[in-house]
């Protein structure tokens, strides 16, 4: 693998909490607190985690929808994290986004034609009016919508059709990377499958890389190459799909996987029920952020924050996890070996 398409290094986004009469800052929400990963050309990386762990904030931060607190983001060789807006604007073409809600992600007062033409015009991609027309038709074909639907208003479409329009808009700029922020979560199951297949087809057709932000592990297992698991603003584990689903190396991932229903009657699985709620990102726990809910936590976890390091006994290479358990001898490590394999068999059974 040569130079990755997107490199994220120690990304941080802290939201100030304003309170009081003069609006002084009384604290910060540590929504994203030191996240690093990279995505190769044509690769799908899934970012999973429960609600409020900061996965959507990562997506929005990469798109520079707000200024970053710290960290480096390198997209196709250009550092975009501290780039002024004017310089960044032409580079935005390379990275586009598909949002979760197909209803609020399309401007209700613009026709489909104008929605799709906006990025093409902004990035000056069309040579003339005829070229623009050809591109618009091409986009409608790519997302399998009838060409004559282009003059309609968004409210005339169903949720799945609107999501196709959203995907077409993301493709309009001819991006290298698409960030899918829960792009299929709001759709019902049959439509969800169609959109997932469409995304996969497009990825093969156009060689797109994808950052697939989701909490739906079944979908993630179906379409991703690698998975990054996030907990409370940090990435706790990154691994190739098979390795992660087969033998998770972080207690949080293990618990997360155990919550996926088994699509087989009578098949039971040992559920790991986590105690308590996610701690507040305003005041995250010291040490390992997961130690308050971790069934295996020991003294070291409460004081020392574990770093993401390669795991020796993973199923596949490139498996990294942030957990002190892996420093213990195999006998004292509940996550050693392929123990988690029994948790698998999601969808592929």
């Amino acid at each position: 693998m040569s130079q990755p398409l997107l490199q994220v290094n120690d990304l941080k986004k802290h939201f100030p909490i304003k309170a009081g009469f003069l609006g002084g800052t009384t604290g910060y929400v540590y929504a994203v607190d030191g996240v690093s990963f990279d995505i190769a050309k044509g690769e799908t990386l899934s970012l999973v985690g429960e609600s409020g762990c900061g996965k959507s904030t990562v997506g929005k931060a990469l798109l520079r929808l707000f200024p970053l607190t710290a960290g480096q983001v390198v997209l196709g060789g250009d550092r975009i994290d501290d780039m002024p807006n004017g310089t960044l604007r032409p580079l935005r073409r390379k990275m586009q986004v598909v949002f979760q809600d197909p209803f609020s992600s399309l401007n209700p007062r613009m026709r489909v034609r104008d929605i799709l033409a906006e990025p093409i015009r902004n990035f000056g991609l069309a040579k003339d009016a005829a070229d623009l027309e050809k591109r618009l038709e091409g986009l409608m074909d790519k997302v399998r919508l009838p060409r004559d639907a282009i003059n309609r208003w968004p409210h005339e479409f169903s949720g799945g059709q609107r999501q196709r329009i959203g995907i077409a808009r993301a493709l309009a700029g001819e991006p290298d990377l698409i960030i899918c922020d829960e792009a299929v979560s709001a759709l019902d199951v049959s439509v969800k499958a169609q959109i997932v297949n469409l995304l996969q087809d497009l990825q093969t057709e156009l060689g797109l890389a994808m950052l697939f932000i989701s909490h739906d592990l079944a979908i993630v297992e179906h379409m991703t190459h690698r998975v990054a698991v996030m907990y409370l603003g940090k990435i706790v584990e990154v691994a190739p799909k098979r390795s992660l689903f087969g033998a998770p190396k972080h207690p949080y991932t293990e618990a997360l996987l155990s919550a996926v229903p088994v699509p087989m009657p009578g098949a039971a699985r040992e559920r790991i029920i986590l105690k308590g709620d996610v701690p507040s990102p305003i005041n995250p726990p010291k040490g390992c952020r997961f130690h308050t809910r971790c069934p295996y936590a020991f003294d070291r976890c409460r004081t020392e924050e574990p770093q993401l390091r390669p795991v020796a006994d993973a199923l596949e290479g490139g498996h990294i996890a942030a957990c002190h358990l892996h420093d213990r001898p195999a006998g004292e490590n509940p996550l050693s070996g392929a123990k988690g394999a029994q948790l698998l068999a999601v969808g592929s059974a």
Partner: peptide, 20 residues
């Protein structure tokens, strides 16, 4: 990619299944 559809739709077919 396992499980995913790889072949693009033939040129004539450009309508989504739910568009019936």
């Amino acid at each position: 990619m396992d499980g995913g559809r790889t072949a693009p739709l033939p040129p004539g077919v450009n309508v989504a299944p739910e568009m019936g």
